[in-house]
Design a protein around this nucleic acid. Structure first.
Lengths: 247, 247
DNA sequence: GCTAGAGTGTGGTCTGACCACATGGTCTGA
DNA sequence: TCAGACCATGTGGTCAGACCACACTCTAGC
């Protein structure tokens, strides 16, 4: 406990957990902490900053949810809080919860995904040698002989779209795309269940995927934009007809 | 996420704070909690869910940072944890910390902002009657007689860009834009300090702002895209020359 | 009627105590 | 010498209880 007596109170006294958060952020900015490093043990951090361990834990929890660290109990080099800087999980949580709390409309999530993914395919089309290896493997997996269940297909579909974003080399867009998609995951799956004919839809989706890749490989950015737009809009329009939510 | 078979086999027993988070998310999805509502008091929530108060507080903290709730101590209708669903703050924190932890490259943040803002101005240009009132007021404020300091101008500039995003009516894009901009705020301000001639830059920025608005009002989406791209790219190129960071 | 004070309920914080667990060293017996 | 069992240690995870500061609400006294 730090002596609060006679301390000149700032305009807004930072809460204890904010002190911890700012301290860690400062260490990140100064380079004292890098991905792969361990945070000090919670008890040591608490003593160092003059706050209680519970306050340290609140800050740690925030960092964990935002995807900056991963925690593990026990002893040894794998335990403790380790900087990982994986934004995807945090982005998913943020968007998903905002959708749940009506801060984000599903319609806007879909539109934003459209904007980002259009940019992704256009950038890939304009790249000299876009690395579509991962995306192509996923397409092959979707077209294997054994029939896939709807859920399996949608999982691969999601991975395909994410692979395109990753291939574009922009981590920010890739994690935003992943977060947007994750957050409406349940809506997509429910919509797929209400489709009039899933096999027909699946065939159409496969053809559209190949068309998108073809446009990228042909370096035709405009065509790629058009096709990705149609791909997303068609699916959402089709599933929305039979969806429960009238909006 | 991967398999929907919700068997009891808990490979990973949910931690206490996750239980609280999931419970609140469930209440949001079911409509039991809406924006404006109060969360139960921490002590009541802890008793209801059979967890300790500290675990409840960790979940509450996460929700606060993500911008879902605001908390206030004291008594009465303004106190407690209230659902607000303001995504901007959470997005800013996420992006800022990921940049600090090298999960996001500043370059990608700028590129993403470019993608989103291009879409914003294009959408505004294609709208019948875009509501540019707030944006225009900010432009007027930037051009008043009394000279503005660099910081004041940049604050208005940021507000202008955000106003455009808000005018487009897409909350998701607006909060992402705000988060992206906030997260590189310090870089922008440092860059402005290193410009060869701020007054010249300020004049150019004013002209570019007016040009963007003119393109929107002329319903010329392509021109608006071009101008916003040039606006952002020029500024970042100019400040990067004298910046310390080589990349 | 009005005001000053007590009362109440809230979040914010700290402390101390356990637990489960992973690791790493030590001891024991072959 | 070495392999295996065992225990000490340090970590996060959790809980219970205790305060505090604060904002509101009620009420007694004027």
């Amino acid at each position: 406990m730090s002596t609060k007596s006679a301390s000149i109170a700032p305009i807004e006294p930072a809460r204890a957990w904010e002190v911890v958060l700012q301290h860690i952020e400062g260490d990140l900015l100064s380079g004292a902490l890098k991905p792969g490093d361990h945070l000090p043990p919670e008890r040591a951090l608490a003593a160092e900053l003059g706050v209680g361990r519970s306050s340290v834990r609140e800050a740690i929890r925030v960092l964990e949810v935002l995807g900056l660290i991963r925690t593990a109990s026990g002893s040894g080099p794998q335990s403790g809080a380790i900087i990982v800087a994986r934004p995807t999980g945090g982005m998913s949580a943020l968007v998903r919860l905002q959708v749940a709390a009506h801060g984000f409309a599903v319609r806007d999530v879909v539109k934003t995904r459209l904007v980002l993914e259009s940019a992704v395919v256009a950038e890939l089309a304009e790249a000299r040698h876009p690395d579509l290896g991962a995306a192509l493997e996923l397409l092959d997996a979707m077209e294997q002989d054994e029939p896939l269940t709807r859920d399996e297909y949608l999982t691969l579909d999601q991975a395909f779209h994410l692979a395109l974003a990753v291939a574009s080399g922009n981590e920010v867009i890739a994690s935003m795309m992943a977060g947007l998609r994750d957050s409406i995951e349940s809506y997509v799956r429910v919509g797929a269940g209400n489709l009039p004919s899933w096999p027909d839809t699946e065939e159409r989706l496969k053809a559209e995927h190949r068309g998108i890749v073809a446009a990228i490989e042909a370096h035709d950015a405009d065509l790629a934009r058009t096709r990705i737009r149609q791909h997303i809009e068609t699916y959402h329009a089709e599933t929305k007809v039979s969806s429960i939510h009238p909006d």
